[in-house]
């Protein structure tokens, strides 16, 4: 087989040089990331919906429950503010990707990409850039609201910020991969929102976001513990709350080692799940 070709009238092509190198996945991933961000921020409704949701819930819950939590040295508002950051990270990664990729598949944007020589890795890298930027923006927003209105205190030590960074990075990656995986479940773009939002909503109840962790029944917590959200909440509480609040946790401590283990496992498992289940075409296209 030869890649240089001559055609009956193809002077242009016949004169062409030897086959040029295919563009790399990393570079294309950066370009795709820029493109994803541009698209995302041009859809004003989606931007408002994505960013406002966790802020609205934080404002509601942290205003309704303000009292001191007995024996923990924190207020209920502070608990909510910390956990809601985890929820915000999951909303910008899991929910946002789950819905948007399902829509892109339904609208055949994915099929078109599959018809180009774009390496699939570039597509996923682009999504990760989108999720990283929007996840950081969401977190900054929640931190601002939390510190301004709900007595959230920013940590001062570098070690604590380091903990924050790895919980954020592992949680975001794991949730993004889960979002990519769940995008293959809805049979059409229309049903995507319900398919993605319902499990996320349930997780927020059983992972200690909406309902304080010490009031949830153990079996619910154990189910929640199978998924990343519970561990992200726990990690962020560890970062933003005083040591005394650890008594509220199921184990009575922040369990950083276990957090890293579970979130890391979700990153690996999520990647495998994506590679096994990702489809460029919708169910209808076969």
């Amino acid at each position: 087989m030869t890649t240089t070709t001559t055609t009956s009238s193809g002077i242009r092509r016949a004169a062409g040089p030897a086959p040029a190198r295919l563009p790399g996945a990393w570079t294309l991933g950066l370009h795709r990331g820029a493109l994803e961000l541009r698209q995302f921020f041009r859809q004003r409704e989606q931007v408002v919906f994505t960013f406002a949701f966790p802020v609205v819930f934080l404002a509601l819950f942290a205003s309704i429950f303000r009292d001191d939590v007995r024996g923990a040295g924190v207020t209920a508002s502070q608990l909510y503010a910390a956990a809601m950051i985890a929820s915000g990270v999951m909303s910008t990664s899991f929910q946002s990707l789950g819905v948007s990729i399902a829509l892109e598949r339904d609208e055949k944007v994915l099929r078109r990409l599959g018809g180009t020589p774009m390496p699939p890795a570039a597509y996923f890298l682009g999504k990760l850039w989108l999720v990283l930027v929007s996840g950081i923006a969401e977190t900054v927003l929640l931190l601002a609201v939390g510190t301004a209105c709900f007595d959230l205190e920013l940590p001062t030590g570098a070690a604590t910020w380091f903990t924050f960074t790895w919980v954020f990075a592992l949680g975001l990656t794991g949730c993004a991969l889960l979002g990519i995986a769940i995008s293959s479940v809805p049979r059409s773009g229309k049903s995507a929102t319900s398919v993605v939002v319902l499990p996320f909503l349930v997780l927020q109840f059983i992972s200690g976001v909406f309902i304080s962790i010490d009031t949830l029944p153990d079996w619910m917590l154990n189910v929640g513990a199978l998924f990343p959200l519970k561990w992200m909440c726990q990690g962020f509480r560890g970062v933003f709350l005083p040591e005394s609040a650890a008594v509220l946790e199921q184990a009575g401590s922040w369990e950083y080692g276990r957090i890293a283990l579970v979130l890391g496992a979700w990153c690996v498992g999520g990647l495998v799940l994506c590679l096994l289940t990702f489809r460029w075409k919708s169910h209808r296209d076969g």
């Binding site: 541009r38 698209q39 859809q43 609208e107 055949k108 944007v109 099929r111 078109r112």
Partner: peptide
């Protein structure tokens, strides 16, 4: 393709 779609916001 027969039925096309390109990113609407670009």
């Amino acid at each position: 393709w027969q039925d096309e779609s390109a990113p609407a916001e670009l």
